[in-house]
């Protein structure tokens, strides 16, 4: 059996609040093997971005991370800035939603990538430059040699995201975290980037954590899926299996809210009523209880649901499912 690359168990990220700590991420658990894939899906406020940031130790300064977070068996929870540095970029790299913010507008693309390479590995400039051309090529930029002298403002949004990917690849990481990396892009560019990430994963055997709000996109990426709501994971399993047989009322609601290319207004969407709760306001009960059509009275408000098995490798945290199985779901 291989050692997992990343082990996350009962991870919580909390902020100090007026009445005790506010848990913006709570109870996140998963394992990622070398070359594995995990899609984290959720709407805004679900804590998916914060969770990713805490994996890289770049959560806001006021946040406290607790629980188990291990990289190849080494705990990352209380690393200092200096201890994080060799991991960031070199072992774990991140691609952000907004490539413009991730790139320095005043430095050329080549300079930024070469600097990133040399920050992790002492090597002559020529060698770093060759490596920069290589990673730009890997990221699918046409004519990488010429791109070195471009400035970020001279590139389109899709190109900039490719540069950000090249930057992430530059130090040869074992895990890439893509946080809504395709959200601001046109659909055709999004499709290209997803394809690229999928290919890079296979070619370079890097593991991938892909964060998105779009369950259809999650299906395109494939691998494991973790659906988050109000900071807590509510359903986990293989993407295809979960989407074919969603067992949490929230996952089901989300799928019924999202139009596909075949839905028309003859068959109306069924929006989830109400609004997502503010982070930390969920308290002890099931996070989705206030918007849930099948909340179990007297239980969901008080007790946090544990995991139940829906199918091998497919878990769901729901009192209704635990009580009535699939028959009880809306």
């Amino acid at each position: 059996m291989t050692t997992p690359l990343l082990t996350v168990q009962d991870l919580a990220v909390s902020f100090p609040g007026q009445s005790g700590p506010v848990r913006a991420v709570d109870g996140a658990s998963f394992e990622l093997n070398p070359g594995g894939r995990l899609v984290i899906a959720g709407e805004s406020g679900s804590g998916k971005s914060l969770l990713c940031r805490s994996l890289l130790g770049i959560q806001p300064e006021t946040a406290t991370v607790s629980g188990k977070l291990e990289w190849k068996g080494q705990s990352l929870v209380s690393l200092s800035r200096d201890q994080w540095r060799p991991l960031r970029g070199a072992s774990i790299a991140m691609i952000f939603q907004d490539p413009t913010a991730a790139l320095n507008p005043l430095l050329s693309v080549g300079r930024q990538i070469i600097d990133a390479i040399r920050a992790h590995r002492r090597c002559p400039r020529d060698e770093a430059r060759a490596r920069a051309v290589e990673v730009l090529g890997m990221a699918g930029l046409p004519d990488p040699e010429h791109r070195l002298t471009n400035y970020p403002s001279e590139l389109s949004g899709g190109m900039r995201q490719r540069v950000a990917i090249a930057l992430a690849l530059s130090a040869g990481p074992e895990l890439i975290i893509a946080d809504e990396a395709t959200t601001n892009l046109d659909v055709s560019i999004q499709a290209q980037i997803v394809k690229l990430l999928r290919r890079l994963r296979l070619d370079l055997e890097v593991a991938l954590i892909f964060v998105t709000h779009d369950l259809d996109l999650a299906a395109e990426v494939g691998g494991d899926l973790m659906v988050m709501y109000a900071g807590q994971p509510v359903e986990m399993g293989d993407v295809q299996a979960v989407l074919a047989d969603p067992c949490h009322p929230y996952t089901r609601g989300l799928l019924r809210s999202a139009p596909t290319l075949r839905t028309t207004r003859e068959v109306p969407l069924q929006p989830i009523p109400g609004q997502a709760p503010k982070p930390g306001s969920v308290g002890a009960g099931a996070p989705f209880r206030d918007r849930c059509p099948v909340a179990v009275e007297g239980v969901c408000a008080l007790q946090r649901p544990g995991w139940s098995q829906a199918a091998p490798g497919h878990r769901v945290a729901c009192h209704r499912f635990e009580k009535d199985g699939r028959a009880g779901l809306p």
């Binding site: 100090p16 700590p21 006021t62």
Partner: peptide, 14 residues
């Protein structure tokens, strides 16, 4: 778990 006594993020609740 530990709670650090860092300055709370400035957010007027309402």
């Amino acid at each position: 778990m530990t709670v650090t006594a860092l300055a709370s993020p400035e957010r007027g609740g309402t």
